[in-house]
Write a protein that binds this DNA or RNA. Structure first.
Lengths: 401, 401
DNA sequence: TCCAATTAGTTTTCAATCTGAACTATATGG
DNA sequence: CCATATAGTTCAGATTGAAAACTAATTGGA
């Protein structure tokens, strides 16, 4: 990102064009474009593209993948692709599990591992130690696949200060103002480890690797109800970093009080705990309760059906308000809500139609298809995107090393 | 605005630095900076600033205002300011009145005029004709003051397609898909006339000329309840251009049906009509009803007080949800709500505290101080900002003419 | 087999633009 | 009246992409 109030230098032009070319290669993906195609696609001259690509290849971000001929006349082009020998480790701390994955620059999940871990109330140091073991596994896997690790992304279910790597508040983990030092998980990675919010990362995962549109609201139904706002293919976090908190939208001013101190929040009607309770699912392990709920829904148990219907209806109220306020025309349901999607959808759509008729095309209300890797992909993707958006800085660092 | 996917050219550097310097002059305002101060402020060299300023002065956007000496040693600097001999005409069509104003580049309202005009249901052509007469007044005033008019901004209470100058939908005027040809109002102005939404323009007016913060939600209480979202000192309009529609946030899922087809919208509780009705104000002219309501409030009439309390409470619900969703920490109340502010505020703050405790500092809930010129200033300001952000294009046009 | 046509990619020249340093211009104060 | 200080200009140098000429590699037809 170039500071809008900084003076423009002649060299900025190259920064921008390096990013433009790298981004074109990333977007073209499997097609493996030649320099000539990049020139046509970007509007740059062949000469400029050649010079830019030379820098990118030298840094290791881009590889030449041999000539390709497609039966046409003329000299064949050199195919170019994001290097599959460079990658980022995505990591996730959630309430009930830990997960890691190796994502190469092209966005392929090359390794994936997760373990159950009841992290609620555990000391951050303990959790980080367990995660460290998983990260070591991922590093080893990357090494055997010949992938050099550039950096990592760590998603947690809470509000974070990305700059200082502090978890400001993660109520479901009972963490508050915990500095995390995630860099220690990936000693020696040139880009370090970036901390992020779970719902935001999942939204970005959906955008980059799940075929999400340029503008949508991602709704994360984990233990809490979270959300991520994607506007013009960018994450909107708001001035304080906590935008998209769908769980605490007021859906009924006379509703019960909420853990946030407010009253009538969506989470009191559509949070996991609220649904389980309304459905009459007895307390217990999360996994088991989810299974019980699904079983009850499948056998059309009236209490469970009503609980999910109510949740869907209130979710519809929240989405109607959100879509109106932010002019958002697509919604992706993730986590818990993706699992319940089939049963949730009718009441949700009915409620949307009642409160904001015509605002959201039902076809634009989709369920996430990334299952449990969306957050991971998004967390890693943020580091990958930062390289694609600012390759110049990366080139500099590579040249010094 | 530079297209992010367009290739960077060497010349882009100058585009950007022209804007940087012009913006610095605009921001410095009354201080009338010298070239040397601009160099220090922007980070450019004196040589670069001199060259850039030369272009800006030649185009007429910037004027030298003579030497200034502040008792220091050394050669005194040439003060620079946005030319007060260039201006833009702001225009407003609202339900009950028309207004115009002349705003110079520095943001001074140099002329202002408005007339009552019951526009609801009138043909757009009729309204535009009346507005044309007002615009002619403004042009004449600008001529006598020696202000060359570069362009105009026209705000209407409805959703617009800015590119095609079409009013897509203005329910309170009973307009639907009306092409407007606002350029005819200002024949010969090089930048033409830009159509915009009333609430959005008012929000921008607040931002640029009312001392608004970088992030806030502007709530416009005209006949409908509208809103404008300012994020990072920019208007957020959403992918479809209708963001900020606070009036149709659902504040009570069991509430009455709304003109938008939905149910339980804020407008059904806090719209002008809803308040008048709940307060027992008989039908009649808007101005008179507003006076009656204020009188009733002043004498602590219980029905009127309750009506405004209810509106405030529901506005609080809407603002709690909005602030949570978009992570917005400041709100400016305009129009009707600014007038009722004193009576509205207690219930509004109480409701905010109940539904989102601690989210919004009461000091950040302010009333607009621009009164009836905010919309005008914002409409004109959009044209002025477009010049400040892209002076290169303006210079080119000026050179051709 | 060989050459024209075609497409890919490189080299060269040129213009735009900023930086940095040297220079000119104009004030203050002893 | 001159040393000092600050404002602003001029000019050489570096970076960069455009444009055009050039080299490289392939296909297809004579």
């Amino acid at each position: 990102m170039i500071d809008a109030t900084a003076p423009g230098r002649v060299g900025d032009v190259r920064r921008r064009n390096l990013s433009l070319v790298l981004d074109s290669i990333a977007r073209t993906g499997d097609a493996k474009p030649s320099r000539a195609q990049l020139a046509a696609g970007t509007g740059l001259t062949k000469a400029a593209v050649s010079s830019l690509v030379a820098d990118l290849v030298e840094s290791g971000l881009v590889s030449e993948v041999g000539l390709y001929r497609d039966g046409e006349r003329g000299r064949p082009g050199q195919g170019l692709e994001l290097s599959s020998r460079r990658g980022v480790i995505g990591m996730e701390i959630n309430v009930d599990y830990l997960a890691v994955g190796v994502v190469d620059l092209a966005g392929n999940l090359r390794f994936h591992s997760s373990v159950e871990s009841p992290n609620r109330g555990l000391e951050p140091a303990t959790v980080m130690e367990r995660l460290g073991a998983l990260a070591a596994e991922a590093k080893a896997a990357a090494a055997t696949e010949g992938i050099a690790i550039l950096g990592g992304g760590l998603a947690v279910p809470g509000l974070v200060d990305e700059q200082r790597s502090v978890v400001l508040s993660a109520p479901n983990l009972h963490w508050e103002n915990e500095p995390l030092n995630p860099g220690a998980l990936l000693e020696g990675a040139p880009l370090g480890v970036r901390l992020s919010n779970e719902a935001n990362s999942a939204a970005l995962g959906e955008l980059w690797y799940g075929g999400g549109p340029a503008d949508f609201l991602y709704v994360s139904g984990e233990v809490g109800v979270g959300g991520g706002v994607i506007i013009a293919s960018e994450l909107y976090t708001g001035p304080g970093g906590s935008a998209g908190e769908l769980g605490h939208i007021v859906v009924n001013p006379d509703g019960p009080s909420c853990s946030c101190g407010g009253a009538g929040c969506l989470e009191t009607f559509a949070g996991q705990e609220a649904i389980f309770e309304a459905a009459g699912i007895p307390p217990g392990a999360l996994e088991e309760r989810a299974e019980l709920l699904l079983a009850a829904l499948r056998r059309r148990d009236p209490q469970a059906t009503k609980a999910v219907d109510d949740a869907g209806r209130y979710l519809g109220v929240a989405l109607a308000s959100s879509a109106r306020l932010m002019d958002i025309e697509a919604v992706v349901l993730g986590g818990h809500f993706a699992t319940l999607g089939e049963w949730l959808r009718p009441a949700l759509l009915g409620s949307l139609e009642r409160h904001a008729p015509g605002l959201l095309d039902p076809r634009n209300l989709t369920l996430s298809g990334l299952e449990h890797s969306g957050t991971l992909l998004g967390a890693a993707g943020q580091v990958i995107r930062s390289v694609i958006e600012s390759p110049f800085e990366f080139l500099l660092a590579a040249k010094l090393a």
